[in-house]
Amino acid sequence: MRAGLLAEFETPEAMLRAITELRGRGYRRLDAFTPYPVRGVDEALGLRRSPLPWIVFPFAIAGAAGGYLVQWHNNAYDYPLIVGGRPAHAAPAFVPITFEMMVLATALSGFVAMLLLARLPELWSPVFDVPGFERASIDRFWIGIDARDPALIRPIAERDLTALGARAVAWAGKERR
């Protein structure tokens, strides 16, 4: 959220009720800022599941295939060592490294994909300038309505948020014209 309306609530229950009511009134670009995970916020905001598993799955398969291929190439094709009657291509011996390469590729691709999906690192955001917003990491619960939400009409939204029990309502970022 680069700009929008922020409302402060004292309890997670009040915040959840407000989110549900705002969604019922047609607001779709909502966000929640809480000091700890609150059960039910994802459903109330209408968030979809993360695409991260589908992004990292091909990298996991490629990592496992690459790890197996390197072992096969080195041990069976390029430099075969016949020791103790063991065949040059002994698939069970390749399982641990294949698994570890899959885990490594998944972890690295997952980390990079997560950073890209979350648009991180974001060192500063306009919401940080809202007075009292620092308490979002201590004991306050905030709802943000993005300025790009077509249902957002500032005076009406401020009145709605105050009626829903918001302690404070503030604008973050540049005013839209």
Rank of each mutant, 00 (worst) to 15 (best):
F111T: 12
Q71Y: 01
G67H: 01
S50Y: 11
Y68T: 13
L81T: 11
V56H: 08
I61L: 15
Y68K: 00
Y68L: 15
E122N: 11
M101K: 06
A91G: 02
R48A: 08
F59A: 15
G66M: 04
P96I: 01
P96G: 01
A93C: 02
S50N: 11
R48D: 08
G67I: 05
Y79H: 15
L69G: 15
L117P: 04
G66D: 08
T98N: 06
V95Y: 10
I97D: 06
A90P: 01
A105E: 01
I55P: 09
T98R: 03
G84F: 00
Q71S: 12
P126S: 03
H73L: 10
G85V: 01
Y79I: 03
A60Q: 12
A65M: 13
P53M: 08
P51Y: 11
A91W: 07
A65S: 14
L120G: 03
A107N: 02
I97C: 01
R49C: 02
P121S: 05
A91I: 07
S109P: 03
Q71D: 12
S109F: 07
W124F: 07
A90T: 10
A113G: 09
R49H: 14
P51S: 09
I97F: 05
R49N: 09
R49L: 10
V83H: 07
E122H: 02
I61T: 15
S109C: 10
R86C: 09
F128R: 03
I55T: 08
V70R: 05
D78Q: 11
P121G: 02
V70I: 15
E100W: 07
G66L: 05
D78A: 14
Y68H: 14
G84C: 09
I61R: 12
M114Y: 15
L81H: 08
E122Y: 01
L108G: 14
A64S: 14
V112F: 11
A105L: 03
L108W: 03
N74H: 14
A88K: 00
L104F: 11
F94G: 09
E100T: 06
V56N: 00
